[in-house]
């Protein structure tokens, strides 16, 4: 089979743009699972929640979804802090995070999804913004704005977080809590407080990822489930807790999915992420950038 070059390059571009967006969805899990060791499988549900908030505000007031996301950041931050507090008191303190902590997040995922179904139904929702229908063309190659803008915002988000984690006191404390809680305590920083801040931040990123998601595609409550496998595949592939690794993993997955969808049909795309995850877990559990 000869592969048409233009089709191939277009699929490649679409994959890179998609990958950028996947990085935004994954970065929250990279922080909570990768750095803090909290297996927050409910993260995609928070992303969908962000999508629905962007949808409501966009429909009622016509506000741009990304602007809405930035405005609700504090609310998501507070939500994250609350969830962590419950998690800490109920599981981490008792040392029961393995079994019951997982069940807790699974329950949260499920409750959020069903509540959204009860309130909004299972219809696909979408947003309006001037740029969504535009496409930049370079000869035969397309750069659809509804993919390009999420990708750019996502990379800005990851860049900002990487700067925060490596340059500020709190950020470095977050990286430290992953390595040695005791040492952090000796440096007069409260590990629980640092973890709360980090987890709250991870949930806050879901607000932005949610807005990006609803720009890219129409959203219904159970869309989040497809992202569980994706985010963990990327997270593991990128080497747990490394943000540059997250971007690389996300781009790889985006490209693979886009090529699969282009050449084998979109119905096979969901299996790519999971196949990736299973293979990574089986053969290289420390990820590509892992030590």
């Amino acid at each position: 089979m000869t592969i048409p070059v233009e089709l191939f390059i277009n699929a490649l571009i679409a994959g890179i743009l998609l990958g950028g967006f996947y990085a935004a969805v994954t970065v929250g899990v990279s922080i909570s699972f990768g750095i803090l060791d909290i297996v927050n499988i409910a993260h995609p549900a928070f992303v969908i929640l962000g999508s629905y908030i962007a949808y409501i505000v966009n429909q009622r007031l016509g506000v741009d979804p990304i602007l809405t996301a930035i405005m609700v950041l504090p609310a998501f931050y507070a939500l994250g802090a609350m969830v962590y507090q419950v998690y800490y008191v109920s599981f981490e303190k008792r040392g029961q995070e393995a079994l019951r902590g997982l069940a807790f997040f699974f329950g949260l995922l499920f409750v959020t999804e069903v509540t959204l179904i009860l309130v909004f139904g299972v219809d696909y929702r979408y947003v309006h913004a001037a740029y969504i229908d535009q496409t930049i063309r370079f000869g035969a190659f397309d750069l659809p704005m509804r993919m390009l803008i999420p990708c750019v915002i996502a990379l800005m988000l990851l860049g900002g977080l990487q700067l925060f984690l490596t340059k500020t006191y709190t950020g470095r404390a977050i990286m430290a809590v992953a390595q040695d809680q005791m040492a952090l305590q000796l440096m007069a920083a409260d590990p629980v407080r640092i973890k709360r801040i980090a987890f709250a931040l991870s949930i806050a990123t879901a607000a932005i990822a949610g807005a990006l998601l609803i720009i890219i595609q129409p959203v219904e409550p159970s869309v989040g489930r497809e992202y569980i496998g994706r985010v963990f595949a990327i997270c593991v592939l990128g080497g747990l807790g490394s943000l540059p690794g997250t971007v690389i993993g996300a781009m790889l997955l985006g490209i693979m999915e886009s090529l699969t969808a282009t050449f084998y049909g979109p119905s096979w795309a969901p299996a790519v992420a999971f196949g990736f995850l299973l293979l990574t877990l089986a053969f290289r559990p420390s990820g590509i950038l892992g030590r």
Binding site: V39, I41, R225, E226, F232, A233, A273, F274, L277, L281
Partner: peptide
């Protein structure tokens, strides 16, 4: 996580 993946 792998069992979640398996279902999909």
């Amino acid at each position: 996580i792998a069992t979640l993946a398996l279902a999909v």
